[in-house]
Nucleic acid binder design. Sequence first.
DNA 1: CGAAAACAATCGTTGGACGCGATTCAAATA
DNA 2: TATTTGAATCGCGTCCAACGATTGTTTTCG
Lengths: 197, 197
Amino acid sequence: MEIRQLKTFRAVAEKLNFTRAAEDLHLAQSSVSAQIKLLEEDLGIRLFDRIGRRILLTEAGEKLLGYARRMEQMTDEIRGELSGSGDFSGTLTIRMPETIASEYMPEVVELFHDEYPKVRLEFINCDDARLREELNTGRIDMAFLMTDSVNFKNVTVEALKPERLVLTSAPSHPLAAKENILSADLQGQTVLHLRVD
Amino acid sequence: MEIRQLKTFRAVAEKLNFTRAAEDLHLAQSSVSAQIKLLEEDLGIRLFDRIGRRILLTEAGEKLLGYARRMEQMTDEIRGELSGSGDFSGTLTIRMPETIASEYMPEVVELFHDEYPKVRLEFINCDDARLREELNTGRIDMAFLMTDSVNFKNVTVEALKPERLVLTSAPSHPLAAKENILSADLQGQTVLHLRVD
DNA sequence: CGAAAACAATCGTTGGACGCGATTCAAATA
DNA sequence: TATTTGAATCGCGTCCAACGATTGTTTTCG
């Protein structure tokens, strides 16, 4: 029996739905199934009745739910009481291109806020090339860029992931018919692309 | 924060000694160190003051100890309340050679008893060859053997580990001088060996 | 005072646990 | 009957946790 399992159990027991619980917990549905299965095996008793695709708490499940809630309260209490200083708060100012922001940030913000609810996130659009200065003066705390390499002094840089660069056009465009496009083919074409500072 | 970590923490906090705690928990000392380190990182606060090789609870540690105890009580309560049927009791009768018993059983019995305190273990010396009958009639529940292979019907057999067979003699024995001994060398010698039923 | 013992921290390795995506199978719904 | 919803299962990859060995330090004892 582990706290992680009890948290998962509580989520499932309250939603009575493995898939929703998985979303809440930022887990795959299969992982939730596996955890519940482990917990049931560990306790040696079924926690849910599976009636068709619908699930109900068994009597044992009902009892456990109460304990799980108290247990979780207690962990929160522990953190509240002990970690004091470890409980970050303040504002993080982040500069990043809108394209990245709209793609990745919704999920990242949710995850981050779950862990550090007292930290406010401030995003600024990445519309100029004065990053180095901004980072050094403390106007922004961090930035996400799409670029081949960055080499700033006094700034920590980490590559997060490669991102494919894709060529897109209207279906009616002459180049759309070609199987392969060489960079030479773009000669004289008007290209709309990301600003790379 | 996981229950396992809190259990480890409690053991250390009560013994004020990592090594003893590790023994109690059937863990390596390094594992205990690692768990405590993780817990301290997770909570963002030191739990022990390390004064030389001696350790003391910090203020945070004192507080946590209370919580850890309540937490553990609660898990026991959960098991007591829920697992009902999963709580095995009764007697297991096991036949095995004394050589095996004295070598492996002390630790095995301790581990087993920690997990199933209500099960009594009964050992019988392995001094006859009527194992098959004994197993089938239910006089014994299981047996440990040292042998090359066993093939009983209605009996589940599992190989646990290979065991080296070593030749030993008094230092004064003629064969003791030889670098290598062949089985032919044993011709005519009196050999004291395990009974293999 | 020097030698030995006690003990926690650290390191490298490895097996197992855990998470994931894809798939399957059953049930509910259209 | 077809489609959707939802949980279980499987195979795979990765990461974590336990271990043994070692180190460095402190305490104890000869």
